[in-house]
Every structure is written in C-alpha cells, then in structure tokens.
Write a protein that binds this DNA or RNA. Structure first.
Lengths: 257, 257
DNA sequence: CGCCTCCGTTTTATAATATAAAACACCGTT
DNA sequence: AACGGTGTTTTATATTATAAAACGGAGGCG
C-alpha cells in the first residue's frame, strides 16, 4: 500500500498556501480539499506540532511555519558544504601530501564529515563519522572559537577537559586563552594535544550567512612541521578555507591572505 | 483523535536529516525510528511524491527535496512582500495623492494583494483579491514582461486579448512589442486600455532571488497625467519600486535612479 | 437582550487505512 | 554458488484516520 493518504493530505495542505492565501482558515482548507473540518483540524494540529504551520492566536488562521525555513537552510548548506568543499580538499591534499579533514560541530564534539587521504598515506582508514574532542583538536578549537558567546557557553557547559596526551589543555581558563589566540591568528593548532606525535592545523569555513559551520584541518607527523616548514602549509590551508567559503556564498572581508 | 501518527512519522523522518546524515537509507531510518522497513518505505514514497525528499537513483539513498526550499522561499517572501511594501505604498500614495496597488500574477491574470487609497479618494472600495487582465493593465504588462521566455509562453498560451476599451491592445503581436517597450523603459503604462478615462503606471518588484514577484501600480484619471505631469510620478514610482525591492533583499543594478 | 451564525475544537462510532511480516528481486561479496 | 545487504511489493490484521455531530465561544443583528 503505497502513498499514505493522511501524509499526502498534509502536504496538500502545505501546498495550498500561496501569495493569494498566505493565511487559511480550517474551513477554507476543508472546502478547498473537500475534507471534513475535523480531518483538516487533526492534520493541522500535527503540522503545527512540528512547526510546519503556525496559528494566529487571535484569528485562528493558519500560515506556514518556520520549520520549512530551517529545513530548507540546512538543505542548501548540506548540498553545498560537502560537495563544494570536496574539490578544494583534494587539491589541498595533493599540494601538501597530507591528510585533510572536513569537520562540523555536534554538541560537545567535532565530527568528521569528509576526509581526503594524502596520496602517500600509509594508514588509510577513514575517520568520517568519528568524533573528536573539542579541547584537544585544532578543528574543535576553531569551531568553538567562532561560536557566539551564547553558543559557546552552551557547548562548554559541564565540559570535561579530559587529558589526551601530556600536552593537552586540561582546564577551562587555559582553553579560553587558547580560543582567543585562535581568533587572533585565524587558525588553530593542535600540537600533539590529542595524539602523541601528530600535529594538526585547522581553519574556519563560513557559509553564505557568515556563520562558521565547518572547519578544515590538515594533519601530519609533528616532524613535518619542524622549523619554518609549517608556514607555507598554514598559508595554503587559509587559502583553501577562503576558497570554500567563497564558493558557499560567503562575501565578506577575506582580504588578509 | 488529534495528532495523526503517519503524518507525525513523516515529519520525524524529515527531521532525521542533518549535517551528519545528509543522506539516509530506508533501513537506517527504520532502525532510528523503530519502524518497519515497509512503513518507512511507504512514508518515503509519499514524501518523494511531493518532492520533500528525493532518492539517489543509483544508491537508493534518500535526502531532502527541493520542495522545502520552494515552500521556504515563498514563506520568506510572503512575510516580506506585503508587510514590507506597505509603508512604501502609503508614502507613495501620500506624496502623489493617488491610489496605489500591489499586484501579483496568478495564471493568466493579475491579482491585487494590497492597495492604498489616495487620501482624497472619493470612491474607496477595495480591489484587493480582484483580478485584472494582463494585456490591458500596466501591472499585467510588467508582470509578464519580466517573466522568462518559458514562463511567458505558458502565461500567454491561448490568451484571449479581450477588448476592454477603444484603446485596448487586442492582438498578440502588438502585445509582444508593448512588452518590449516595458522592458526598455523599466515601467509600464496603461493609457485608458482597461477603463475609459483611467491611466495607470506600474513598475516591477524584485525579490531577494532577483525575480520579479510583484508589481506596484499607481492609478489616476487620465487628465492627471496631461502634459509633463506624468514624469515626476514615474520617477517617484520607480523610487518606490527600488526601495521595496531593496527591502526584500534584492541587491543588483538599481543604479539608474 | 437574546437570537443566530460562523468559527475552531472535541467527541465518538465506524470502517477505511496504515501497519508490519514475509516474500521478492537485485547487487556485491564471499 | 550461497550469503548478507539493499529497496521494494504483497498481504492479512487491527490499529488508526476519518467524518458526523455535538460543543462552546465570538461576533452581528434585530
């Protein structure tokens, strides 16, 4: 039994709203769709519960709800961020011969949503889907540093600064100072704070609305960054971030190369 | 019996998609929501039918559909266009002491979605909700002129160029030329083509995506526009259009004041 | 003042409908 | 060739959506 009637009807209701009828009454919908008032009311109640419609408290009229906007924005972003970033990530990986990751924030941890292995990688297991601590990773630092004050408080509420290596930052105060450094420099570094012998660099990705929605990181054995060899990598990484952000529709001060 | 289970479940499915899971398999959804595969499949089929999800032909995976974007865009616009335009329309009406209308296209006719009477109006009945022919009104000309070729063909398919007054354009060829003039001048004029003794001017309103979604018109007894008295009105009307478009998020070549 | 009508909502009995198990068909891997 | 995985279709069951009617509040009008 394909096509579920009630669901079908729910979406037919959503389709009824247009420029001519930005607001609709139960009885109007009822007559337009030839459905019982009661049926329409139940459907609307369910739609309202999920914020796909909202109801004017005074007039009782219904109109479309903000969940549509929220879902739509996510769709636009997700179409963008991964597929658009891909090419740049591959290029970055090739130029540096290092592993590159695309990470987003999920609650109190970062989550890998894409990765490109270095062409010369020995171990090639994928971290995609795996979680990484905020306080001990470059990507985590970036994603939190660029949050709003309010969001950051929420993220770090009751956060456990668990010691990962000898170099891990293990208290809130030091971490706050680290976040400040990230904002000042425009990139984050994890110097063997998460995994002995591994150093990571990360930069923010801005979406079309100017918010930082992802971070790109580059990982290497710490020896790879000895002396001044880290600077060209930071430069390339920043360029990649700016390229991806621009592709996502971000149009702001991306001047400082 | 409030809250319809199947509809509720359909929206729970839509909520499952996020940055971590931009694509989901039937079986994944099934396990995440503790529903039978078959149930999920029926729900997805219905969602797919309405383009709220789409399915990758190769992998079979599901992701969110473009209908969400379409509905969201409409919502954003409808929130905007009428309420945002209002103030500008009132100001225009006061400055010119004339009646001002906000009109959108609906099939083969324009529809008044708002109006502001001139402060000195004698007859004050509202045209809101009423329809107006495309070929004999300034607003109609504007709304069709700024459509894409494809949309315009659809709009004018089997169109009946009904004679409204002695001056009405009554054939397709003349109308095409008139549309060209509208695009060139940036505004449309209805010189007693719809109603004897009444002349209207209209300009396009661009939304955030750059599409013309509405038109603003100004109506007066033809005598009001004798000699050069029409020019300052056109200028004011254009300014109003640019103001409203800008408020709607339109950001393009609005240079030529 | 009370009647009347229209609204959205709630209730309730009925039967239509959504549900889930199982079988199916397909693909890739083992 | 057999298995484990996919999405899909079928079918029988009973859960579930449905619509009629009753409710209660709001506004208009005599």
């Amino acid at each position: 039994m394909p096509i579920i009637q009630s669901v079908d009807r729910a979406f037919k209701i959503l389709d009824l709203f247009n420029e001519l009828n930005p607001e609709l009454k139960v009885s109007e919908i009822s007559s337009k769709l030839s459905l019982n008032k009661s049926t329409v009311h139940s459907l609307l109640k369910t739609l309202k519960e999920h914020d796909y419609v909202r109801q004017d408290p005074d007039s009782g009229k219904y109109s479309l709800g903000m969940k549509l906007v929220e879902r739509s924005n996510f769709l636009m972003n997700s179409i963008d961020v991964r597929s658009i970033a891909k090419q740049s990530l591959v290029e970055l990986s090739m130029e540096t011969s290092l592993a590159v990751h695309l990470v987003i924030l999920d609650g109190q941890a970062g989550v890998y949503i894409d990765k490109v292995d270095s062409p010369t990688a020995i171990i090639g297991y994928s971290r995609v889907g795996r979680r990484v601590p905020i306080h001990s990773s470059a990507v985590g630092k970036v994603l939190v540093a660029y949050q709003s004050q309010e969001e950051r408080n929420e993220t770090l509420k009751d956060y456990d600064y668990k010691k990962q290596t000898e170099k891990t930052i293990t208290n809130a105060q030091d971490f706050q100072e680290e976040l400040q450094r990230v904002l000042t420099k425009g990139y984050a570094i994890d110097a063997e704070e998460n995994e002995p012998g591994v150093t990571c660099l990360a930069i923010p990705i801005y979406d079309h609305s100017g918010r930082v929605t992802a971070a790109v990181s580059i990982s290497a054995p710490s020896t790879r960054f000895s002396g001044d060899r880290i600077h060209p990598v930071i430069s390339k990484l920043k360029q990649t971030g700016e390229t991806i952000s621009r592709k996502l529709g971000y149009t702001s001060t991306l001047s400082h190369a």
